[in-house]
């Protein structure tokens, strides 16, 4: 970032393709673990909230508080216990996915038209079959909207975990700040945005292939 130096030095990029690829891989790994774990926990919480409606407000309140705590603060709380580790990063990342995922799963299932549920019951579907074959498929659109937001948010937050020794592309950003060198900083930031956009696009494609009935007309 010395005057006269270009913002991006392409020779540095060319010499570090291996490292950049590695960081992208780390970034994806951190993100996928967080979203998959978050989804599993969110489904458990959502089913609990649907089965026992009085549990739903405290569940969302708890997830809401987790969501409000700044990411760096949440990681800082955990470091004395779980160290500068993958576990620390994932606990934080998973925490941030819960609010949006639980909320969308529950509201998706609750928004299934009552006449559809009534018809299914009247034709002899068991309650379990109604959940798996009617309610979940129909809630998929709202659930996917939640997964998309959770994924994009997680990809952004993963960069912050560089401060606790993880971080994927965040590592490049931090390197740039520490060495006062704009190239890795811009490469890391640009790629993390690109990754978010690409992940969102990929999720849209998956959603379309899972929900053929939304493509008609």
């Amino acid at each position: 970032m010395t005057p006269g130096e270009p913002l991006v030095r392409w020779d540095w990029v060319a010499n570090h393709t291996g490292e950049i690829g590695l960081r992208i891989g780390e970034h994806l790994e951190l993100t996928i673990i967080a979203v998959v774990l978050g989804l599993a926990i969110a489904f458990a919480l959502a089913f609990a909230g649907l089965r026992l409606p009085h549990l739903y407000p405290p569940i969302t309140a708890f997830a809401g508080i987790l969501y409000t705590i700044p990411s760096l603060a949440l990681f800082a709380f955990l470091v004395p216990y779980t160290g500068l580790s993958l576990l620390t990063a994932e606990i934080g990342l998973v925490s941030y996915t819960l609010l949006i995922l639980v909320r969308n799963i529950v509201s998706g299932i609750r928004s299934v038209p009552s006449e559809v549920r009534d018809a299914a019951l009247g034709m002899g579907y068991t309650p379990r079959a109604i959940l798996w074959r009617i309610e979940l498929p129909l809630a998929l659109g709202v659930i996917f909207a939640g997964i998309r937001v959770a994924t994009i948010t997680t990809i952004g937050l993963v960069t912050v975990t560089a401060l606790i020794g993880q971080g994927g592309l965040g590592y490049l950003i931090l390197l740039g700040i520490q060495q006062f060198f704009s190239t890795p900083l811009i490469v890391g930031a640009t790629l993390s945005v690109a990754l978010a956009v690409a992940a969102d696009g990929a999720l849209v494609l998956v959603q379309r292939s899972l929900m053929p009935w939304t493509r008609v007309r």
């Binding site: 994009i152 990809i155 952004g156 937050l157 993963v158 960069t159 912050v160 560089a162 965040g170 950003i173 740039g176 700040i177 900083l185 811009i186 890391g188 930031a189 640009t190 993390s192 945005v193 978010a196 956009v197 969102d200």
Partner: peptide, 9 residues
């Protein structure tokens, strides 16, 4: 889609 650390970067 704009991560906060990227904005800072």
């Amino acid at each position: 889609a704009l991560p906060s650390l990227a904005l800072l970067a």
